[in-house]
Design a protein around this nucleic acid. Structure first.
Length: 602
DNA sequence: CTAGGGTTAG
């Protein structure tokens, strides 16, 4: 006991004199550190002996991972009550562990309590606070902490700036972050790899992969090393853009530079390859990964499950699930949601419900995504009322329906012809404070058009155009189609022609819809001109485009033009769809066509 | 002591 007290006293005294010694330079810094850590370790050893069970020092030393809220609160109380009080290094280590579990508000609560207990912050705990405020999207509070840093006489360091820059990038304010980089330099702090990585990540999130590439080159020019993080971020963006070859070549560049890929790099590449239909390459990459002893994790499996499920390969997905269990990888909520969605998409609702039971048994609480998938499953088999029953149960479970949940149900009602209920649900969504987005409006407008309520759709569309909402090409295509089907081909054409000045580029679907409208109106020559124009604009016609035009020409009795289009379509690798074939057969039976025409179709 | 990448639903 005596020994312990004397060491503790020494440590206290030592902490008091340390800044002085540092300032006067009477002792070398590294020596101080050595002694300091020696004393700290003595303190730790004694604490654990006296305490009996594992105390907070022990836990901090062994590293805290995945700490739950209640556990964190208990640990914090223990720290606050312990005498002598733990140092700020201990608090910082503890807070950062909690921050890693994304419980930012909890950390901020603890910081507040530190202040109430008369413990002053240092630059480290202040940096942690800045990070937490940023990650809670309260950047303005983060700035006020920065003010506090300076008021307390601390120099904001590279970490302080990096934390703020990262916060801005995560909020999508990349240009503001770039401005802060300049201010950082003015303050004598050099941007480092971490700075650039945040910026590269922000740029990639904004979808500008080529700009991220430029940033990578800029880093090299400024002799700031890029690391696996930098490369993986860009590789992932390239994969998302569908630029798989570019992703692979960047992957090779990284390896050539001696930067070893991580499981994250492989996860992105495997996903990208599989989504692009290059299954063999994906499998080869997985093999490569395992042979390099990079261990697949739950995300690797989730990615694979997703691509299998999207291909309808549920059998394989189930085998993958078993493989995960065998390897000791715990499935998470995303694993179950992915599988559940697979069953729903195949209309296998009882198995989807079994999946719900399985996840609960395995201690994974279903979330809003789970129930939204299930609702979609019911809607797909035209059981929208059962979908509504699930929907009404969501809030009883403490979950909140979001825009996706409402959108699926609105669509479900529209497709069941219950347009009135769709509109009511849409109103309910708004009154519950869930903001409809472009997708929700697109679904509603599509439903209104399909159910003979073009005027209502156009009314909402007018309002939307006046709003700040960025209407994508899908929305315009929906309205153009609605107008065409509602006999307002002239209006549709005007809207179509106005797209460029609205800054929207028509896609294959838009052209096809417009071509169909022109055909309906009997303007076949204009439709033909539009077919050539879409090619000039870089939109290759698809099977739907060709079939639409072919049927129109057949209806018109222009067999030569039909035959020419059929040949062209076949040369593009497309074939006649069911509706075109039916039309040809009908015409064959009525004697309008001879059999050679049918032969040409196949 | 501080920062950061990859997975699910419309």
């Amino acid at each position: 006991m005596m020994i312990q007290r004397s060491i503790t006293t020494n440590l206290k005294a030592f902490r008091m004199v340390q800044p002085h010694l540092l300032k006067t330079g009477t002792l070398r810094t590294d020596l101080l550190c050595t002694i300091s850590s020696f004393l700290s370790s003595c303190e730790r050893d004694f604490s654990s002996i006296t305490n009996g069970n594992v105390c907070f020092r022990e836990r901090l030393r062994s590293g805290i991972v995945d700490i739950k809220k209640d556990d964190a609160i208990a640990l914090f109380q223990e720290m606050i009550r312990s005498r002598p009080l733990p140092g700020l290094v201990d608090f910082s280590r503890f807070f950062s562990a909690i921050a890693r579990t994304k419980q930012f508000n909890l950390v901020l609560d603890f910081c507040k309590q530190l202040e109430l207990n008369g413990i002053a912050h240092n630059i480290y705990t202040l940096n942690i606070m800045i990070n937490c405020f940023c990650r809670c999207c309260k950047t303005c509070f983060a700035y006020s902490v920065l003010g506090k840093v300076m008021k307390l006489g601390y120099e904001p360091d590279t970490t302080t700036f990096n934390t703020l820059i990262n916060g801005l990038c995560l909020e999508g304010k990349v240009s503001k972050a770039v401005v802060l980089v300049d201010r950082m330099v003015e303050n004598g702090c050099q941007p480092d790899m971490v700075t650039y990585n945040s910026i590269v990540n922000g740029i990639c999130r904004s979808g500008d992969t080529s700009l991220a590439f430029d940033m990578l080159r800029k880093m090299e020019e400024r002799n700031v090393k890029a690391d696996v993080f930098t490369y993986s971020t860009i590789i992932d963006s390239l994969c998302r853009d569908g630029c798989i070859d570019a992703a692979i070549s960047l992957f090779k560049e990284m390896e050539t530079k001696g930067i070893k890929s991580s499981v994250v790099t492989y996860n992105s590449l495997v996903r990208g390859l599989c989504k692009a239909g290059k299954w063999n390459d994906g499998a080869l990459l997985l093999k490569d990964m395992v042979s390099r002893e990079i261990v697949p994790n739950v995300i690797t499996f989730n990615v694979l499950l997703d691509v299998f499920v999207k291909e309808g390969k549920l059998q394989e997905a189930n085998e993958l699930y078993k493989e995960m269990i065998t390897r000791g990888i715990s499935p998470n909520i995303i694993t179950y949601n992915t599988l559940m969605d697979g069953y729903c998409m195949q209309n296998r609702l009882s198995e989807a419900n079994n999946m719900l039971d399985l996840m609960v048994r395995n201690k994974c609480s279903p979330d809003i995504v789970t129930f939204t998938s299930l609702i979609k499953g019911y809607c797909m088999v035209k059981r929208v009322d059962d979908g509504m029953k699930v929907f009404r149960n969501i809030s009883k479970r403490g979950l909140v329906a979001n825009a996706v949940t409402y959108s699926i149900l609105v669509q479900g009602f529209c497709q069941s012809g219950k347009i009135k209920l769709a509109e009511e649900l849409f109103q309910e969504m708004v009154s519950h404070g869930v903001l409809p987005d472009v997708m929700t409006y697109g679904i509603l407008l599509d439903g209104l058009c399909d159910n003979g309520k073009l005027e209502k759709a156009l009314e909402i569309f007018e309002d939307l155009q006046k709003s700040k909402m960025d209407l994508g090409i899908v929305m315009y295509t929906t309205i153009i189609e609605g107008m065409c089907k509602g006999g307002k081909v002239e209006d549709a054409w005007n809207l179509f022609c106005s797209l460029p000045c609205k800054g929207v580029k028509p896609n294959v679907m838009t052209y096809t819809v417009m071509i169909s409208g022109l055909c309906k109106k009997g303007s076949l020559s204009e439709a033909n001109i539009l077919l050539r124009k879409m090619e000039e604009d870089g939109n290759a016609p698809n099977d739907c485009t060709y079939n639409t035009l072919i049927r129109a020409h057949l209806r018109d009795g222009d067999l030569t033009a039909s035959a020419k289009l059929i040949e062209e379509m076949k040369s593009c690798g497309f074939s006649a769809d069911a509706s075109s074939i039916k039309m040809v057969i009908d015409m064959l039976l009525s004697g309008e066509l001879d059999k050679s025409f049918l032969d040409m179709l196949s």
